[in-house]
Design a binder for these strands. Sequence first.
RNA 1: GCGCCCAUCGUCUAUCGGUCAGGACACCAGGUUUUCAUCCUGGUAAGCCGGGUUCGACUCCCGGUGGGCGCGCCA
Length: 461
Amino acid sequence: MCYRNEMSSKSLPSTVRVRFAPSPTGQIHIGNIRAAIFNWLFARHHGGKFLLRIEDTDRERSTPEAVQGLLDALEWLGLDYDEPPVYQTDEFPRHLEAVETLLARGHAYRGTKGEGGEVVFFRMPGEDMIFEDAVKGRLEKKAKDLPDFVILRSNGTPVFHLANVVDDITMGITHVIRGDDHVENTFRHIALFRALGATVPHYAHLPMIVNAQGKPYSKRDGAAFVGEFREKGYLPEALFNYLALLGWSPGGDREILTRKEMIALFDFAQVQSSPAQMDVRKLDWMNAEYIRRMPFELFVERFQAAMEKGGVFSDPPDPAYLRRVAALMQVRTHHFPDLPAMAGFFFREDFAWDEKTVRKRLLKPGIPDLVRKYRNVLTTLPRFEASFLEEALQATANVQGVPAADLIHAVRVAVSGLGVGPGLFEMLETLGRARVLARLEVALQRYGMAGEEGAKEHGAS
RNA sequence: GCGCCCAUCGUCUAUCGGUCAGGACACCAGGUUUUCAUCCUGGUAAGCCGGGUUCGACUCCCGGUGGGCGCGCCA
């Protein structure tokens, strides 16, 4: 037997029907969600249907929370399905019906195995089998390696293979796209489709996602569940893009693609058949890239949300001020959850002092004095704008014969508590004269007296 | 143990018998930014090993090695 697979064809009829069939027994693993992404991309590419089947027959481990988590994850990633989800437990009668059919046609027989009671076995055709996998190519198996197997347990419930195939028939699935770990099962599934008189679907088995040791990627290797990436502040678009490219190459030298582009380019001919290693650093780069390319208005929204989540605001922020700060932060944001620590000082006076930077930049001979002089100049600066602020600073430093950089760094830490951040002058302009003057005063009070050698212990309290 | 599958820079990959083996991430160096980030330049870095086939192999074949998956009354 041989079943040709035409999944790489560019011109499939618009009757393509694929499904994502997870078991709701916990959080959704990224390997799993990638299978969903590939199914979705394939369906959208061919104008077909992407369906969802929840394989909740494992009553012990399936929970309503897990089902909800699953639906949330799909929504978050924008993996919309075209028909109401099918719950496998609802299909139970059909499974039993199929068993009867197989029994009646002689494709199945009753028997016993091990200690248990009577079960129903499926009778394999007893011949060598071959099928064409869209990513792995021609796969074959000798008849002797394809033994009969149980399809109905002694307690009367169907096993995975039977339920899976029956549901695929019921749902009219034309292409089965799933994880590599199901490759060997495919021979059994094909035999079942045949025995039930159904059309055998096309198959595509996706390579696994592995860790640095080449072992299946798990929680021990870092974030492994969709929910974790979401909590860590990754954008769904970035995770989607990264996962789509893990094992698939859109051709050319493309890395960042819109969904539309991915849909247009998706093809199993370009899917790798060897395992892919998860590289969080590239995901991080991609996430930052998506943040940089994000429309400013959207960034402002997300920025505000992240700051709120970090408990930064004591009062609702002034919209205009918020936007000005956001404009300074967008290009240097890698993860939204980092923002409260990076930009919290823009919104509250009780920001943390990075003592190491304070010692390095502020607690040096003559520097507090210099900061004091600059502060005095600022009180009368005609316009509190970047260019004026810079000119004034240069002048102040020059007069004292000190490198401007020394004063810049000192002022930065004095007004923000940090050693890094946006350009100093635009930062000062954004903060505004009142805040800057007040903060410089506070810093001088706090650290100013420790400006001379031997007085450092006063500083870091 | 048996069976099936896989193998290009550290990582993701391009290549589909003839390329200086290309790109991206990461890393290193330089420039811009007086910080960080961004941005721009440049650089280091790969065909698992051994046989064939061929005028010519990363590409095809065989063997080896390494790795993965499967072999449930789990899914």
